[in-house]
């Protein structure tokens, strides 16, 4: 049997699965610049987050290790209830929390890679979807308030993401469709840190230049990746593994 030729123009059936993974790619953001407590006093952080997109919700968890340079490993699950479509993802992010003015301002260059799997059997079609995305960008953050045990962080960022989507026939494993795209994801986050340990943060993301007009012009893309569509999320992070400081 001959392999089916790859289709160059994505059909509408691709859009929902594609956006499932795009939604999944959002949560692994910079640390201070996204509203988390810096890893100054502790070595590790675990965080869980939830995000609400126009048609989907996402849950994910991450573990962050490091200090000024840090790395985060995260896993997530995004679901569109109406379409009963689910994707799971795993992502690795590395970045720097560069600070000036004694911890008041931060610059956070960041790079991330995410692989997502699903949805499978989308709307009863015999195809499975996989996605990979590489992204690089930066964030800016400020600490406007330190009062006792409470610290308030606010930040914003942008990253350029390159996405590759593959639709694979379940039985033949032939790649029936492959699509690549580059877009920008803007984010704004704010967090409240208690005791430099526990962070509550909220974030807003908004894509732009997605999808590119030349290929998916006019398509209203769900899952928070429609051009200009704002998505909301919240997260909680817990720092632990206190660093041992040499006595002065």
């Amino acid at each position: 049997m001959n392999a089916a030729p790859a289709v160059r123009i994505p059909s509408c059936a691709m859009v929902v699965p594609m956006l499932l993974v795009l939604a999944a790619a959002a949560p692994l953001h910079g640390q201070v610049c996204a509203g988390f407590a810096p890893l100054d006093e502790t070595r590790y952080r675990v965080a869980v987050s939830a995000a609400s997109y126009a048609y989907a919700t996402a849950m994910r968890a991450s573990v962050t290790v490091g200090g000024t340079p840090y790395a985060s490993l995260g896993i997530g699950r995004t679901r569109d209830a109406e379409l009963d479509a689910v994707s799971v993802d795993a992502g690795l992010e590395a970045g720097l929390d560069l600070t000036a003015q004694n911890g008041t301002f931060y610059l956070c260059p960041v790079a991330a890679f995410t692989a997502s799997f699903g949805p499978d059997d989308f709307l009863f079609r015999p195809d499975d979807y996989t996605y990979t995305e590489g992204a690089a960008g930066f964030g800016l953050a400020v600490v406007p308030l330190r009062a006792g045990r409470v610290t308030v962080l606010a930040g914003a960022g942008a990253r350029l993401a390159h996405l590759t989507v593959r639709r694979v026939h379940r039985s033949t494993e032939v790649i029936r469709w492959k699509y690549t795209n580059t877009y920008t994801l803007w984010s704004v986050g704010a967090g409240v840190v208690l005791d430099d340990v526990l962070t509550f943060r909220t974030f807003v993301t908004m894509p732009s230049r997605f999808p590119p007009p030349s290929t998916l012009e006019g398509m209203a893309v769900p899952f928070g990746r429609e051009e200009g569509e704002v998505s909301f999320g919240a997260a909680v992070g817990l720092n632990f593994g206190r660093r041992v400081r040499p006595p002065r």
Binding site: V48, S49, A50, A51, S52, T57, A58, M59, A81, R149, L194, D195, V197, L198, F200, G233, A234, A235, V236, L238
Partner: peptide, 23 residues
């Protein structure tokens, strides 16, 4: 002095659950 875990951890998962379930 860590008031955070004692006071806020119990709220963590319910809060996230609410955020996740709201559509």
């Amino acid at each position: 002095g860590s008031i955070a875990p004692r006071l806020l951890l119990p709220c963590l998962f319910p809060c996230l659950g609410t955020a996740t379930c709201s559509d």
